[in-house]
Design a protein around this nucleic acid. Sequence first.
DNA 1: GCGGGCTTTCCGGAAAATGGAAGCTGTTAG
DNA 2: CTAACAGCTTCCATTTTCCGGAAAGCCCGC
Lengths: 240, 240
Amino acid sequence: MIGRALRLLDAFDAERRELTLSELARRADMPLSTAHRLLNEFCAWGAVERNDKGLYRIGLRLWELGSLAPRGPGLRETALPFLEDLSLITRENVQLAVREGTEVVFVERIAGSGAVPVLTRVGGRFALTATGVGLVLLAHAPAEVQEDVLGSPIDRYTANTVTDPSRLRRMLADTRSNGFSISDRQVTMDSLSVGAPIRDRHGAVIAAVSLVVRHGSTTAHALAPLVRTSGQAISRALSA
Amino acid sequence: MIGRALRLLDAFDAERRELTLSELARRADMPLSTAHRLLNEFCAWGAVERNDKGLYRIGLRLWELGSLAPRGPGLRETALPFLEDLSLITRENVQLAVREGTEVVFVERIAGSGAVPVLTRVGGRFALTATGVGLVLLAHAPAEVQEDVLGSPIDRYTANTVTDPSRLRRMLADTRSNGFSISDRQVTMDSLSVGAPIRDRHGAVIAAVSLVVRHGSTTAHALAPLVRTSGQAISRALSA
DNA sequence: GCGGGCTTTCCGGAAAATGGAAGCTGTTAG
DNA sequence: CTAACAGCTTCCATTTTCCGGAAAGCCCGC
């Protein structure tokens, strides 16, 4: 049963990157001896490693494997220079994300020099409904996914989070027709994000880029052309 | 037996990111039915996924997990802006790598605009003995690792690759005293790389940065101060 | 519509995982 | 100094689970 072994790896997260055997066993809800044996096997293969204190952590081998994951063909590498440009010009937070199922997965994130602290993390997940990138990805997701998301209760993060399905539908329609999305204080009350689509050579939306700025510092509509242009530039580079 | 399941994941590599069931079974040397069942379990968990054609590939979930791997605390994120700077200034290839066992693992790589094509890849591995980053990492590795590497036959890539242990020892000593390493046409006959160490707050070398340029375009000694400075800047940023 | 390659399902035998318990190690307290 | 403790590692009999051959689907291209 491999699922059990994978539960162990699930025990790791951004806050807890290094765990003791007992913590792992507790979090994965299995006897210590079992956890111990499984971890030894993972160690032997390089999926996890132990630091000098004996704590377990995710191994480089797993990172290598993960870097083979298809986040578009070379998406991150291609997009990186454009994201840096955006970051240099605006000095704000830039994010690159893809959709997986009914969630956003953040693929790259560049922290602006004097920007709002933002709670997402590379490799992190978030609901599709609240963020700038999420709205873009949802707006261009298969109908099935949209129905699934809009049909389920929608997480609220702030007083501004839009949780009404019909209002969301309108926002998605706007996003499609405008070519950019706006998430105004939907995630935290002091931030606002503007997202734009990134398309493959066939025009299908495969990722999204966004700027996250402090609410009030700039208007969303001032940022939109910048983000849109960036998304288009990345799309073009991907097709080349 | 988890090792068997992991062998299956090993079948993926940079060239073969999407594989059929039969290919996977063949490469991992196991019966189709076994491979099939294991892959189903992996799919259920998100470690692998299937594209529209039914081909298997590494899943985003695995990428997420991998991004928790300790490549130094925030090494990649911290170093990225400095690497971009180097790349902008020189328009050459910039690489960031760590050591794992007796190999180099490339953690980040920025392709210069008009630079030599370089055969390494983010997430890729290479011998410690040939590259600029490798020499730095080997020069500051525990004695045990050095003996292990220098005591085994050393891979040759070009006519220039240094394979003589005593000559390598001298190069490592130079690397330590100079604060940078030079790999002159040791990997390919048209490239040269200059590496410098990145240290943690205790002064221990945890990573290396390098510039890879076309042989003859610049002298290594002209690049060295640039790379060294960059390495030191990253070290400082890491300690902050 | 038929042949070949690929994928999926099934099931009895066999092998490998399980987890309780006991021994170990290093740490803190008395 | 040693005793209690918490976490780590090893052991082994039990039994669950995985293994993989075989056969049945499923698609294509011919």
